Structure formats: structure tokens, C-alpha cells
Simulated scan of single mutants.
Amino acid sequence: MRHYHCNSPEAAGRILAACLLSDGHLSLTELEALDRCGMQRRLLLNRSRLLAIVRMLYEDLTRCGYLNWSDVCNVDPETLAWLAADVQDRRLRRDIIELCSEAVTADGSNCDREAEFLRLLRAAWQLPAQ
């Protein structure tokens, strides 16, 4: 998996990308919600750069040839903890959690995998559950 500098826009974007893929698809509704919630201002990422990070994350996660799409989208707790370790700044962590929460609720459906992703991310950062 690629390495990004700690607290970089790419490190933050990769966590957001993993969240967006956790339900198996990325929707325009989610991207529009991120734009409305100030993703570019908060993470210093525009939609185009986020989509490039999504593609790179997908490439990194599919390096194991035996994985199917469902396996790729379901980031395991160890990998998520590794991704989360690249963001140490508390404000940036809060922004990522808020943006992830906005994205997963944007389509109006509740997905167990998205909820589990957020739970694991909060645990990795030792944040209280909501």
C-alpha cells in the first residue's frame, strides 16, 4: 500500500475513500454531499483529487489477486487502523469523521458496513461512539 505523509490531504482522502467504498459503490449523491460539506476547504481535496485517491486505494487493495469486489470494499480492522495512524491531527480527524458521516447518510440508506467502518475508525482514534 502506498505511503502518504502524516496529516496530508492524501492520507485524509484515503480514509474518506475507504469509507465511501465500504458499501460497495460510490455515488454521485455522496460526492455532492462532500462538496456541500466543504471537503475541499477542510481536507484540501477537490472531487477530482478524491476520485484519484479512490482509484489508487482500489489498486492497492486489489493487489491480492484472489479478492473479489466485496472483499476489497470491506477494509479489515488492521488495515483501517494502519490508515488511521496516518492522521494524528485532532481537528483533521474530526473533519474526516464528519465528512464520512455526511457521505454515508447522503443516499438515505443505512448500511451495516458503513456503520461498522465508522465504528472501527472511531475506535482506531479512541473517539467516543455516537
Rank of each mutant, 00 (worst) to 15 (best):
Y58F: 13
I97W: 10
F117I: 00
L121C: 01
Y58R: 13
R91K: 15
H5L: 12
R94Y: 12
I96D: 05
Y4E: 09
E98L: 11
I15H: 06
R49V: 07
I97P: 04
A85W: 08
D86I: 02
V87H: 14
A81G: 03
L99T: 03
V75Y: 04
C64N: 12
P9S: 08
A18V: 00
L28F: 06
R49C: 03
L92V: 03
T79G: 11
T62V: 09
R119F: 08
R36E: 15
N74K: 13
I15Q: 02
L92Q: 15
N46V: 00
R94S: 15
D95C: 11
G24L: 04
A115G: 02
L31P: 07
E116A: 04
C111Y: 11
A85N: 11
I53S: 09
R94I: 04
G13E: 00
A106P: 03
R41M: 07
R36M: 15
R63D: 09
S101T: 15
A12Q: 08
P77M: 04
L57Q: 12
D107M: 02
D60H: 03
A85M: 02
I15P: 04
S109Q: 10
R113M: 01
G38I: 00
D86V: 00
L44Y: 05
L26T: 01
L61P: 02
L16Q: 10
P9H: 06
R122D: 03
L43I: 02
S27C: 00
A52H: 10
C64F: 12
T105H: 10
C64K: 14
A106E: 01
R36T: 05
L99N: 06
R93A: 07
H5Q: 13
L26R: 08
